[in-house]
């Protein structure tokens, strides 16, 4: 239902009319991505890797037009996003860009490919991991890991909502606005009744600001990446706040190669490391890749 709404309200109006005419008015079931590449037919990718080809193959001018449409005709308002080749649409749908960067490498000069990812709120998808996240009647710190596209963000969002509903003061450091689907600071997706969201700010800074200002019991953030991020998580854990975060890594062996993030596990910042994967039925499942002593 929500996917259909996002498709109709957030995605379709932003697309060029020629593409809109080729696409179904209702979101195909399980739609995850819309891939647009210069000179190639557009692809709709649904759960389980199912692909549908659409005859619209954009040229360079179409791609430039699409970029301006996604920026709502205001490139200046998305300067940082264009630099990062990534933006979040109102409602939480994410768009990644590729193409040619400017000579200084600071902005996208010629867009050539787009990956529009649907924001999905799957309420209850983190249900199976909640007994671990609330083990012993208290909130536990956890790191969710998986390869890209498995559903870390969706799981984090639902875990944040369930922790919030369980009575915890949850704060979300939402750098790219994808966890809460923020529209000008207001969450468009359900992240729970006791959840505060700080979006549009580097996650390391957001974690520190939330820690100081909002007295959280649980801090939630997506995609730990830099040393700055891990330092902020370390600070938060040292202040008695439980951190629920995610990182790209298929399993614990992969995570060990990401030394800065694995150092957080070694230093006891997380009670659990949960590896996520999709089952054959496309349902999100988890396995405990690491548990702190006594919690196994």
């Amino acid at each position: 239902m929500e996917e259909a709404k996002a498709w109709r309200q957030d995605i379709l109006p932003l697309l060029p009319i020629a593409l809109r005419d080729c696409l179904p008015q209702q979101a195909p079931e399980g739609l995850e991505e819309l891939r647009i590449r210069v000179g190639r037919p557009t692809r709709l990718i649904c759960g389980g890797g199912q692909e549908t080809l659409v005859s619209w193959a954009p040229n360079r001018a179409d791609c430039a037009d699409l970029l301006m449409r996604l920026c709502r005709q205001s490139a200046y308002a998305y300067e940082d996003e264009l630099r990062a080749c990534y933006m979040t649409l109102p409602g939480g749908c994410r768009v990644g860009f590729a193409g040619r960067m400017s000579e200084d490498g600071l902005r996208l000069a010629t867009p050539g490919a787009f990956n529009i990812r649907m924001a999905r709120q799957v309420k209850g998808c983190a249900g199976a991991m909640m007994p671990l996240l609330l083990k012993g009647g208290i909130a536990r710190a956890a790191l969710l890991i998986s390869a890209p596209g498995v559903g870390k963000t969706t799981a984090l969002r639902d875990a944040a909502r369930q922790l919030s509903e369980a009575g915890y003061a949850v704060c979300v450091a939402d750098e790219r606005g994808e966890l809460a689907g923020g529209n000008d600071g207001v969450p468009m997706l359900d992240v729970g009744p006791r959840t505060d969201v700080l979006e549009g700010c580097k996650k390391a800074r957001a974690l520190r600001l939330l820690l100081r200002g909002m007295s959280p019991q649980v801090l939630v953030t997506d995609e730990l990446f830099s040393a700055e991020d891990t330092d902020a998580v370390l600070d938060a854990s040292g202040c008695g706040v439980r951190v629920l975060a995610s990182a790209h890594a298929e399993n614990l062996e992969d995570l060990k190669r990401r030394r800065e993030i694995y150092a957080l596990v070694e230093q006891g910042c997380f009670d659990y490391v949960l590896a996520l994967r999709r089952g054959r039925d496309n349902v999100l499942r988890h396995s405990v890749a690491y548990a702190k002593e006594g919690l196994g």
Binding site: C71, R72, Q73, S74, Y76, A77, E79, D184
Partner: peptide, 11 residues
């Protein structure tokens, strides 16, 4: 407004 609010021009 463009400089300080950085919202899309329509808004």
């Amino acid at each position: 407004m463009m400089e300080y609010q950085a919202l899309p021009v329509g808004e």
